[in-house]
Design a protein around this nucleic acid. Sequence first.
DNA 1: TCTGGGGTCCTAGGACCC
DNA 2: TCTGGGGTCCTAGGACCC
Length: 395
Amino acid sequence: VTERRIAHLDMDAFYASCELGRRPELRGRPIAIGGRGDPTRRGVVTTASYEARAFGVRSGMALRTAAELCPDCLFLPVDFDLYRDYSRRFKAALRKITDRIEDRGIDEVYLDLTGLEGVERDRGAWLARQLKNCVQQATGLTCSVGLAPNKLLAKIASDLNKPDGLTVIEMDDLERTIWPLAAGRINGIGPKSQQRLTALGIHSIGDLAQASPALLQRHFGERHARWMIDCAQGRDERALVTESSPKSRSRETTFERNLHPRTDWHALAAELARLSRELARELALRGYRSRTIGVKVRFDDFRIVTRDLSLAQPTDEEVAVRRAAFECLARIALDRRIRLLGVRAGTLSHRDDPITREGSPKVNVRKDAATQGKGVAAPGQMAAQQHLPLFDEQV
DNA sequence: TCTGGGGTCCTAGGACCC
DNA sequence: TCTGGGGTCCTAGGACCC
């Protein structure tokens, strides 16, 4: 059994780099990409150039906050079409080296270099350099590559020397290089898990490796604990996932100001209709049909509520999507101002798929505040019911 | 007016079926 | 009267990732 050689490739400050590729005269200036490119409006930074990062600007930060930290920062609106184009180009270029590629979003991939020509010479470092050259030639952009015996370590490695990095990690490097890192550097350990680990006195990956398995099991369950221990030991046997079909599609909007469920009902309903229309059009365009339509609401206190509805038959039609979406919304008790509204289509099948099941889905009504019918209906609920016919018939 | 938009996967209870 | 054990589907929420 020969050890695998897995690379993780991550584009550097991707959105910002794409913008600079199109407007090189901005090079050297602090720039931040996010929202509509207007820091007085609602939105967050998706990517900051390294010059902007020097001022403390980070992704996820409110645009307004970024503008305060870095008054000279240039703000640009998100242009997904441009980034998708760059994304296609670097992935197509890499595909000439190997087709064993796992797509991890717009700016990341894993590649399995095991057995490729030239890989045995220096454990893959030369090939990893070729990956970087290849991306550079195809896009003019830099990336960072991690090379390791598995995905877990390759991912950690690619993050160690950014930007324009190339980092090789072997099993022998585990204690020296990996164990000192925070547990949150493991892909899959996010803020919540990190906080729970900290409460147990576990900070680094090394702490995790030496923690009592029984303790971890008590706090995280058998499966999760097993997984964390394996990660801390650098163990990861997962193969690359080179093919996958989408599970869901969605559309959502954060309003410029929080909307009142009653006084702003017209705007809310119009937005739900618009999102439904866009979603249906996308389904039809891509040849998908959905059997589960859902709605998501984020209130002004950031609480998120979702409602799903399974349909008798999969659909890609605007009217069916909209009707289901309004039914879902009517089941949510709208007792606060609304910040975000979204529509989701799940349980996707393809136009050409054979029909796998027929008949109606099970009726399974969950008891929640809006469906119990006790007492007075919430204002939003009444509004939703009142306006349902209007938007159902509107084309 | 701090906190986007688009995804995946997991869990868990109840319904329902065998 | 009391007692089962899967297995799947549906729904809601939550963690996490890019």
